[in-house]
Design a protein around this nucleic acid. Sequence first.
DNA 1: TAATTAATCACCCCAATGGGGTGATTTTTT
DNA 2: AAAAAATCACCCCATTGGGGTGATTAATTA
Lengths: 208, 208
Amino acid sequence: MGRSIKVSIIEDDETLREGYAFLIGATEGYDVVSSYCSYDEAAKKIAIDRPDVILLDIELPGVNGIDAIPKLKKLLPNCYILILTVYESEKQIFNALANGASGYLTKNTPSAKIIESIKEVREGGGPMSINIARLVIRSFQKNQESPLSKRETQILELIGEGKSRGQIAGELFIDLETVRSHIKNIYLKLDVNSRADAIKLARQNKLI
Amino acid sequence: MGRSIKVSIIEDDETLREGYAFLIGATEGYDVVSSYCSYDEAAKKIAIDRPDVILLDIELPGVNGIDAIPKLKKLLPNCYILILTVYESEKQIFNALANGASGYLTKNTPSAKIIESIKEVREGGGPMSINIARLVIRSFQKNQESPLSKRETQILELIGEGKSRGQIAGELFIDLETVRSHIKNIYLKLDVNSRADAIKLARQNKLI
DNA sequence: TAATTAATCACCCCAATGGGGTGATTTTTT
DNA sequence: AAAAAATCACCCCATTGGGGTGATTAATTA
């Protein structure tokens, strides 16, 4: 086996921070190189610590965890960030992942799973708590009871790609007028009267 | 604890199918109610079996697993579908999830993890193999080195929502000409000359 | 501090697009 | 047999979209 995994912790709650540090530091193959109570504190020195993985809380004083992610990534491009938080709102989760987090654990996660996730994330995995995985998977799932027909859905997807009627007609080998007709039916079914509204409603209801 | 979890297996490889059936059937709390070698076979009787969870292979003779998902969901709306396959292409994975699969395991998954995942999926979780989770999480991550400025990214996002220049201008409280100017710069930076191409390139490179 | 980059607005042009009407024919599905 | 889906046609016209060419004022970075 290789060298120990170097872990840094950013967590404002002192009890938790020390708890994690003790837990991880006591584990064979793991090394806690530093721990901070805020991003601002961390920013000063974390580049020298050169952790492999950062355990990051979201509810932090000053710069919040979500915004800290890209900043940390800039300081340490090869470092993995593992979110460890109580927040479970979809927005928070997706923003964290979009900003570069490689995993997302909620704070009820058992110690063993945290330890395992640190290793997993460094090996290119994407550890998530069960409830997070549920949300993530659900975000992919389309509405099975769409009012739109197959063709309509297909055309609405192309509209979502910014394509014009003409482009859509060319792509589907059908007449421009047919495309118009489909779009009119889409508008009727969704009760909207513009591309933007159709797309918005379709995305909200996962029709596309 | 409640009653046993009723599991159905759809897998064309006989050895594997029987292996899974034996493995799961022998586990306390699990009950294999049926196993089939294709969707067509399953379609005839699976509604009577009323499984809680279906283990589904993707590479099936006849109707492939991906297309089978919505059909199975229609037959058994409250049943969870867990994909168990060797396929790891992004497209397959995202299509499976979009079609209604609740979890995705690759075939190298250890037995214990399969057993655990069946329970997890029925409890509303979203079990995934490590490599799948990696892909899923990566699909959320935006490109940190976007050539676009914040404003440009914002405007491109609105374009991706199908909004017109006028709508964008109104939403951002800036002049229509300013929006035009930004769009021109976006086109310059991305080296495209249409909304569709800009969106396509931006989505490919995860700029939005 | 100097030089870029970002963000804002202005006015030229014109073909193409988008949305609204109204209607018809042919498959496919139910 | 009836309903839904998919196809095409022609009416109208204001809005949009893309191409040019510039300019001014922050903000950021070198």
